[in-house]
Design a binder for these strands. Structure first.
Lengths: 219, 219
DNA sequence: ACATTACGGTTGTATTTACAACAGAAAGAA
DNA sequence: TTCTTTCTGTTGTAAATACAACCGTAATGT
């Protein structure tokens, strides 16, 4: 486990905690290390979870099969990222997704209850972990709500207007750059790229916006 | 503030904490009570927030204006519900929404930092607040991800398949009831009611599903 | 019993989208 | 340079959606 402290150190969860402190806290946080071969399941649909998990080596896919067996990949987990934090509440019920190793992978499980209830012994930085975890999940929450706000619009144009307005607010200016290229933006908003490109040009021709690559300006 | 302890007691935040303990913890949590007249702003777009807020009387709307001034109401806050938890991380930036009182309202602000860093003095149940808050936001997170999973599907049929599959998994049966009527389900999935109704009937005619009111069965 | 309202299903049309295919520009590699 | 790849815009068509309007039924209240 000690081999991975340099990875943990760079995660959101352990931000601001030194090597020695992480090392000292591992047992206090109920840390357990597991290895998975390519293709093996880290978590299965139907299981119950009370841990937050950090990927320290390899790569994972979060995927879901619907009732009729159609599989869709919801996302991927990169080294240093955590997952499982949305299922730790007692009322959250069974997992609805599978998590599968797409390469040989190594993860560390942390017992949520041990994270939340700060111990009295030794863990000088335990409060930081609680804070980091809370801020991380709070931040994720905010981003999800924002994205949902765009996606709940019916037409591509409305989605674009919602997204661009928000980006303008965030950057506090009517001109700004976005962190996506066209394909990525289309994926983010769940629309077809060419249709979106078409709509962007219409909006430009109507004098609503101007753009060049990922630079945008609202009028 | 003491007048509202019976309200706080029934919130997710203070679940499991007794009247006396809540009363004792208020100052420790940096609680501040504010009143707003109908139409006044509780929070404004552009402000920074480091508090979690509980509505103890009245009603609030969370709303957003886009760059061109089109207003949309994103949700409403009922008595006993908390809000603001998505904006408390230092990196979350300025608020992108307004929160407006639709009736004369009373809210209590709690300092997030005081919630997270459990104090040593007197607050026997402080750890419970941290846990409650964490589970609440984690739960919200899970629901958002699920909803986003449905909404990211392109067609009404795919959205329905995604939603019904998940409901089937949750209730662990191929037949189940859903907590929505048609209009509510359409709103939840952000589609047109009549188009959705049409699609449901097509799916029924194709032998994929059967339903009666809010009872569904998958084949 | 009657009127009213809420809900679910159906249909037609105009609008919008997805999808595929293609072309030009820009960036990068050989 | 030249070739290749990536990115973006454009167009046409088939498919899906939104919207409005209408009907029948069930539930509710007077």
């Amino acid at each position: 486990m000690k081999n991975y402290i340099h990875i943990l150190k760079r995660t959101k969860l352990f931000a601001g905690v030194g090597d020695d402190e992480i090392s000292a806290m591992l047992s206090c946080l109920g840390a357990r290390l597991y290895n998975y071969k390519k293709g093996e399941y880290v978590l299965r649909q139907g299981e119950h979870l009370s841990d937050i998990i950090v990927l320290v080596e390899g790569n994972l896919h979060i995927q879901k099969d619907d009732y009729w067996g159609n599989r869709s990949i919801l996302g991927q987990v990169a080294v240093g990222e955590m997952f499982g934090e949305a299922y730790v509440a007692p009322e959250s019920g069974a997992l609805l997704n599978d998590v599968v190793a797409t390469e040989n992978s190594t993860v560390i499980f942390f017992d949520v209850r041990k994270i939340i209830t700060t111990c009295s012994s030794g863990c000088r930085f335990h409060y930081l972990i609680v804070q980091n975890m809370f801020f991380a999940i709070s931040d994720k929450n905010r981003k999800l709500v924002q994205k949902l706000g765009h996606m709940s619009k019916r037409t591509t144009r409305e989605k674009l207007i919602s997204y661009l307005s928000e980006e303008s607010k965030k950057q506090n200016s009517s001109s700004f750059t976005i962190p996506f290229n066209r394909q990525q933006l289309a994926d983010f908003l769940s629309v077809d790229r060419s249709a979106m490109s078409n709509e962007l040009c219409k909006m430009r021709d109507e004098g609503l916006i101007a753009f060049d690559k990922n630079y945008f300006r609202l009028f």
